[in-house]
Simulated assay, not measured.
Amino acid sequence: MKPLKIAYIRYHLREPATGIGNVCKNFELELSKYNDVQLIGLTPPPISNKKGILKIINKAWFVGWLKFAVPFLSIIKGADVYVEMNMLYPLFRFARFYFFIYDLAFVKMPEVVLNTNYNKRVSFLKRINGQKDKNIAISESTRRDFLEYTGVPPSTVDVVYLDSSMAVDPVTDGRAVPTTPYFLFVGTLEPRKNVTNLVRAFYSFSEQVSEEYHLYLIGKKGWLYEEIFKTIDEKPHLKDRIKWIGYASDQELSFYYMNAFALLYPSLYEGFGLPILEAMRHGLPVISTNNSSLGEVGGDAVLYCDSIEAPGILRPMLQLHREPGLRDKLIRKGYERAGLFSWKQFGDTLHTTFIQNR
Score class of each variant (00 low, 15 high):
Leu114Trp: 06
Leu114Tyr: 03
Asn115Gly: 02
Tyr118Lys: 15
Asn119Tyr: 11
Arg121Ser: 07
Ser123Asn: 14
Leu125His: 02
Lys126Ile: 12
Lys126Ser: 06
Arg127Ile: 03
Arg127Asn: 06
Gln131Asn: 14
Lys132His: 09
Asp133Trp: 01
Lys134Val: 01
Lys134Cys: 04
Asn135Arg: 00
Ile136Thr: 06
Ile138Cys: 00
Glu140Val: 04
Thr142Trp: 01
Thr142Met: 02
Thr142Cys: 07
Arg143Ala: 03
Asp145Trp: 04
Phe146Met: 08
Phe146Trp: 05
Leu147Met: 08
Thr150Arg: 05
Gly151Ser: 14
Pro154Asn: 09
Pro154Ile: 12
Ser155Ile: 15
Ser155Phe: 13
Val157Thr: 09
Val160His: 14
Leu162Lys: 07
Met166Ala: 08
Met166Asp: 08
Ala167Trp: 06
Asp169Glu: 15
Asp169Pro: 02
Thr172Pro: 00
Asp173Arg: 11
Arg175Val: 04
Arg175Ile: 12
Ala176Ile: 14
Val177Thr: 13
Val177Arg: 14
Val177Tyr: 06
Pro178Lys: 02
Pro178Met: 03
Thr179Gly: 00
Pro181Asp: 11
Leu184Cys: 07
Phe185Asp: 09
Phe185Val: 07
Pro191Val: 10
Val195Ile: 15
Asn197Gly: 13
Leu198Lys: 04
Leu198Asn: 05
Val199Pro: 07
Arg200Ile: 11
Ser204Leu: 09
Phe205Asp: 09
Glu207Asn: 12
Gln208Gly: 06
Gln208Met: 15
Val209Gln: 08
Ser210Asp: 14
Glu212Asp: 12
Glu212Trp: 04
Leu215Cys: 02
Leu215Phe: 02
Tyr216Glu: 04
Tyr216Leu: 09
Tyr216Pro: 00
Leu217Phe: 02
Gly219Tyr: 05
Gly219Glu: 09
Lys220Gln: 13
